[in-house]
């Protein structure tokens, strides 16, 4: 697979002036007759004939204008065959021709007009809509990079919306009030080349409706209202009250709802006319002037819809006074109650029946409430002429009586009496009389229904006969016109009859043993439930928590407080940095005689990015120390990216989210080759691209940096253009003898110098490892990790498998306190092969047991160096012990510097 596009042509231009654009040649042509041929899209596949080849010279020409949007790339398969036998003398070779993009396409919106809506009073930055424009030019190229911009807003004034220039998302920028403007219209422009002046633009419109919410209280025109009505009359429209509301008309946010504060007798009712928001006061129950001449009511108004949360707390129920004057009307007398029931004893003799006084049926004067004095009484409906009445007093007597009148009928006799006022006009009041037989069962209360009259019989089993005592025992319900019981039951404790079911005429309700058992069971449950609930609450208080079904670990785990439940993107794999400033050490590895140097300080070919948001562009020389300090200061740091010579598209965010964008890399290399060819003929066409990737998709595990060397074995002068670090790495890749970087001094720490050791409990760990040198021209991956730690001892990090990714892996780990300036560590590896360096600086009183973790290197070309500097202030000469190395390929160096004040007892165990 070719790494680069071998050749390029520009779309929309006549490229033939550059012919031949490429030549192929086989070494076999020196001693064999060779003919060359090509095939592929643009040659013998549509579009045909764009590329042709001189079969004898191998020169490839372009013949037509190409369109990148049609064919972004051509792959020419080149063949070299024997001129006579036609046998392929070389494996086919793919020559990729990249079509360079020109900005010949304008952004195209997905819609000409976008329609959207948003509620008023929404929070700022609320997303309203998202505009989408596409550009047919090359993806990941500036020609297709679209920037959005609001050109105008109607109605004009303060900008109510903000448009994200990159994403096309329209957000609220200001407080929206529908009552001010209920619709906005925006003209939006999309320009490619990221909005540059030379970009091509297109426009669309956005219509945004502001949706109403109930953020206005209804009000009334007046502070108080009054009305009057005659007594004993109803009104469907006693008063009309206009409500005013600024919310959207005819919506529930606008429609008023009137309600009374008072109105205990329910004589009045409000309804709202939804067409004009007028509240109509109705009188639904007659008023009695003699009882109340004036009513002082109060009412309030709200909306049918609930108030918006932004104003709901401000709503106060303020009653509006409403005075109702009742107008007196002259009323005729009346019988109160209008129906009276009289009983006659069953054992009444015939003699006694004559002139038997049934009772008094006097009419009442409505104006005074007393017995009417100016009326005369007459019998009205009395089919059997059973009664006679005293015309002046209303005394009712039996005229004649026949038991058959009751028995044949429904058990009672019904008649009407009249009370007629004297004078003109005469008013007549009518009363109803019901006569029935009094027997043992007639002592019970009488119930009245719409259908029939039912008499509740006296208790069949009377345990207490006192009138002021509640009845006990059983009861029977039966129609008043019959003896057949329709339901029976028992009296409960307070004398209330327990109404059983209604079995129908002639049926009787009885409770069986099963029903009693159910009742007992129900009572038991009522007793047990509170007890069990109390026990459960007690268990909670005692710390017992319910376990999820499915065993330990199933279900949700609670998010601890103060955690926020968010993912903490420390940006550092495998460590747990804290919010502390970190001072790192600059580690330099020297190859003594061979002069191999790999330093941790980063050469000035990239820029730093901090905090994960801001991007600092430009060239900036940073040392490893500076970098580490920065990382310590910004625990959640972003990736570091840098481009030599020129910046290209692709943002930090893209790398973070998508890992290494291979499309971007392709574009990068192509454009860089293009740019180099323009500016410097003698410039080597090699490149070093350092891309710090935040463990994105496809990047090596645990890495934040990748370095790719593209070189050709015929020309290695490009090494001189690299920074010292990557030059060294490239040289390792190429298998060259590595020379030390001038000016870089790295020695063991001088214990007599003013060495600032870290504070107690500080640990410095440096791990470096590298695998076997790669083959020439291959890719090198460099990983760098920087760790910050607190004041506690940190376990050694496992060294990553050097064989996993690429050919050289460098892992650097820094852990220190706030002020320590660590010394450089000089290592003399015998070979430029796998190197593992572990350095620890331990403070006094540290517990060193079990903290050292030197990897077991089974490979024969490994170097393990362990250095320890322990405790300041000591005058003890350093002791350096070098183990006897039977195998020359393995070197283990152990050095200890121990001073008297360290307090350590020499319990270190170093492999």
């Amino acid at each position: 697979e070719w790494i680069e596009f071998a050749a390029a042509c520009r779309e929309g231009e006549d490229n033939s002036k550059r012919n031949p654009i490429a030549k192929i040649r086989s070494d076999c042509e020196e001693n064999q007759p060779i003919v060359y041929s090509i095939s592929g899209i643009g040659i013998d596949q549509p579009p045909y004939g764009i590329f042709v080849i001189n079969k004898n010279t191998g020169e490839i020409n372009i013949t037509s204008i190409v369109d990148r949007e049609v064919t972004p790339m051509f792959v020419i398969r080149c063949y070299a065959r024997h001129a006579i036998t036609n046998r392929e003398v070389e494996p086919p070779l793919d020559l990729r021709i990249r079509v360079l993009d020109i900005n010949d396409n304008a952004p195209v919106f997905s819609q000409a007009t976008y329609m959207g809506s948003i509620e008023e009073s929404s929070m700022e930055t609320t997303l309203v809509m998202k505009l989408i424009a596409t550009d047919a030019d090359e993806p990941n190229n500036l020609n297709s990079k679209i920037a959005y911009k609001i050109v105008s807003q109607e109605p004009a004034g303060a900008s109510m919306f903000i448009l994200n220039r990159d994403s096309g998302e329209v957000h609220i920028a200001n407080y929206l009030d529908r009552e001010q403007y209920d619709r906005y219209s925006l003209v939006v422009r999309a320009s490619d080349r990221d909005g540059a002046a030379d970009g091509i633009s297109s426009q669309c419109t956005c219509s945004i409706e502001v949706i109403d919410v109930n953020d206005n209280f209804p009000t009334l025109l007046q502070n108080s209202y009054s009305a009057s009505i005659e007594e004993n009359t109803l009104s469907s429209q006693l008063l009309m009250i206009q409500a005013i509301d600024r919310d959207q008309m005819f919506s529930d946010n606008w429609l008023a709802e009137f309600y009374f504060i008072g109105n205990e007798d329910n004589c009045f009712e409000f309804v709202t006319d939804s067409t004009n928001n007028v509240g109509i006061l109705k009188v639904i129950k007659p008023l009695n002037y003699e009882q109340m001449q004036s009513l002082q009511l109060s009412f309030a108004v709200r909306n049918k819809a609930a108030f918006h949360h932004s104003i709901a707390s401000q709503y106060q129920v303020i009653g509006t006074p409403l005075t109702i004057q009742v107008i007196n009307v002259k009323e005729p007398p009346s019988f109160q109650p209008s129906t009276r029931i009289f009983y006659i004893p069953r054992d009444l003799s015939k003699e006694a029946m004559s002139n038997y006084i049934v009772g008094m049926c006097a009419a009442t004067d409505e104006e005074t409430g007393l017995i009417a004095s100016n009326v005369r009484y007459l019998m009205g409906y009395d089919p059997s002429s059973m009664f006679k009445i005293n015309a002046k007093t209303g005394e009712l007597r039996l005229n004649k009586f026949d038991w058959s009148m009751l028995n044949v009928g429904k058990g009672f006799y019904k008649a009407e009496i009249l009370a007629i006022t004297e004078g003109i006009p005469a008013n007549t009041a009518t009363g109803t009389i019901v006569l029935t037989i009094q027997d043992d069962n007639d002592n019970c209360p009488v119930l009245s229904t719409d259908i029939r009259k039912i008499c509740m019989s006296a208790p069949s089993t009377v345990l207490s006969a006192q009138a002021d005592q509640p009845p006990k025992g059983s009861w029977t319900l039966r129609p008043i016109d019959g003896k057949t019981a329709v339901s029976t039951g028992v009296y409960v404790g307070d004398g209330t009859p327990d109404v059983g079911r209604w079995p129908g005429r002639g049926g009787t309700t009885t409770l069986g043993g099963g029903a009693i058992a159910l009742m007992f069971l129900g009572a038991l449950i009522f007793l047990l439930v509170p007890i069990l609930m109390a026990m459960s609450a007690c268990c909670d208080r005692c710390g017992y928590k319910a376990r999820p079904v499915g065993g330990v670990g199933a279900g949700f785990e609670p998010v601890p407080e103060c955690d926020g439940g968010a993912i903490h993107s420390w940006g550092i794999e495998g460590a747990h940095p804290q919010d502390q400033d970190v001072t790192s050490i600059s580690v330099t590895k020297h190859a003594g005689s061979a002069g191999e140097i790999v330093e941790s300080s980063v050469s000035g070919i990239y820029t730093n990015t901090r905090g994960g948001t801001a991007i600092n562009t430009g060239m900036k020389e940073t040392s490893g120390l500076e970098t580490a300090v920065d990382y310590g200061r910004f625990p959640i740091y972003g990736t570091t990216s840098g481009y030599r010579k020129e910046s290209v598209g692709g943002t930090l965010q893209e790398y973070r989210e998508g890992g290494v964008n291979m499309a971007f890399l392709d574009s990068y290399f192509a454009e860089k080759a293009f740019a180099y060819a323009d500016e410097d003929e003698g410039r080597p066409a090699n490149d070093c691209l350092l891309i710090y990737d935040h463990e994105g998709i496809g990047s090596p595990v645990g890495s934040i940096g990748c370095c790719s060397f593209i070189g050709e074995d015929m020309d290695d002068t490009y090494l001189d253009t690299l920074g010292p670090k990557f030059k060294t790495l490239a040289e390792i890749c190429l298998g060259k003898v590595v020379e030390p970087i001038p000016g870089v001094s790295a020695t063991f720490p001088n214990i007599d110098s003013d060495l600032k050791l870290p504070p107690p409990g500080t640990t410095i760990i440096v791990n470096e490892s590298s695998s076997m040198p790669p083959q020439v021209g291959s890719t090198t991956f460099v990983t760098e990790n920087t760790y910050a730690s607190g004041a506690t001892l940190q376990p050694a990090r496992p060294i990553p498998d050097p064989l996993l990714h690429g050919n050289v892996m460098v892992t650097e780990t820094y852990t220190s306190g706030s002020t320590f300036q660590p010394p450089a560590l000089t290592i003399d590896p015998l070979r430029a092969s796998n190197v593992v360096v572990t350095e620890r600086v331990l403070a006094p009183n540290s517990d060193l047991r079990g903290v050292l973790n030197i990897p077991d290197l089974t490979d024969g070309a490994n170097v393990v160096v362990t250095e320890r500097v322990i405790a300041p202030g000591s005058r003890l000469p350093p002791s350096l012990s070098i183990p006897d190395l039977a195998d020359g390929s393995n070197v283990v160096v152990t050095e200890r510097v121990i001073r008297p004040a360290s307090g350590l007892q020499g319990s270190l165990n170093i492999p």
């Binding site: 031949p20 040649r25 086989s26 070779l93 020559l95 360079l100 060819a677 323009d678 021209g777």
Partner: peptide, 25 residues
């Protein structure tokens, strides 16, 4: 070997041949 020479792009119409050999990523 099977060699490819490509004429590099140059706005100044100055050609420069660049030789490629088989390379793998």
């Amino acid at each position: 070997g099977f060699h490819v020479e490509v004429k590099e792009w140059n706005e100044n119409n100055v050609t420069r041949w660049k030789t490629f050999k088989r390379q793998k990523r």
